[in-house]
């Protein structure tokens, strides 16, 4: 396939297309664009343990969303396999590369650093912290806040919801704190 077609897309192409998911899902069946609710449906399906938060008909209420998540997995597969150049590395700013090298990461190729996201990383503390603790905080935080980046930063802000603006300010406050103060301690 043509190498040009395999290049990543600039923000002004990809961003607007992502936003179209909001009206698309509403038109398909009045569904609100949001992804983190799937974590709730997955818990309700596997480990409800009698908790009231998981006592609902997850198939009926969450079935469409789980299928949507399945599609995201498929899309990730298709695009990573056929729609990226060989030897792909994210074209991040030189300043970011320097900062990440300073944090002790050598290999900055691929979609994610292998030193954090490869299975061998699970023999290291920083690998566990990144994957397990990072995942835990994302899961806990998105449920407490009632949404994640898709539900608050895109759907919620687009619908001019004040709670979503507060949540997005929180997302950035937490992310900045982690990036600038906590990450150097973990790594």
């Amino acid at each position: 396939m043509n190498e040009i077609l395999r290049q990543p897309w600039p923000w002004y192409v990809a961003g607007p297309l992502i936003g179209l998911m909001v009206p698309l899902l509403l038109m398909l069946g009045g569904k609100p664009f949001g992804i983190s609710s799937n974590l709730r449906h997955m818990c309700a399906a596997t480990v409800p343990c009698g908790l009231p938060f998981f006592t609902y008909d997850w198939k009926r209420q969450g079935g469409w969303n789980l299928l949507f998540a399945l599609g995201i997995v498929l899309g990730g597969f298709v695009a990573a396999r056929w729609m990226l150049p060989d030897g792909y590395a994210t074209a991040i700013a030189a300043a970011t590369q320097n900062d990440l090298h300073a944090l002790g990461l050598g290999d900055l190729s691929g979609l994610v650093p292998a030193e954090l996201f490869g299975w061998p990383a699970l023999t290291t503390t920083r690998g566990w912290v990144t994957l397990a603790l990072g995942g835990f905080l994302v899961g806990f935080g998105s449920r407490w806040a009632g949404g994640c980046t898709s539900g608050h930063a895109i759907s919620g802000l687009a619908a001019l919801q004040l709670p979503s603006l507060i949540a997005v300010i929180g997302f950035f406050a937490g992310g900045l704190l982690m990036t600038h103060f906590l990450l150097p301690l973990v790594f």
Partner: peptide, 17 residues
């Protein structure tokens, strides 16, 4: 909740989608 999500986002670099 937003701040806790942000801590996780900064660490994991991935939100649920």
């Amino acid at each position: 909740g937003g701040a806790i999500f942000g801590l996780g986002w900064g660490l994991l670099g991935a939100c649920p989608g």
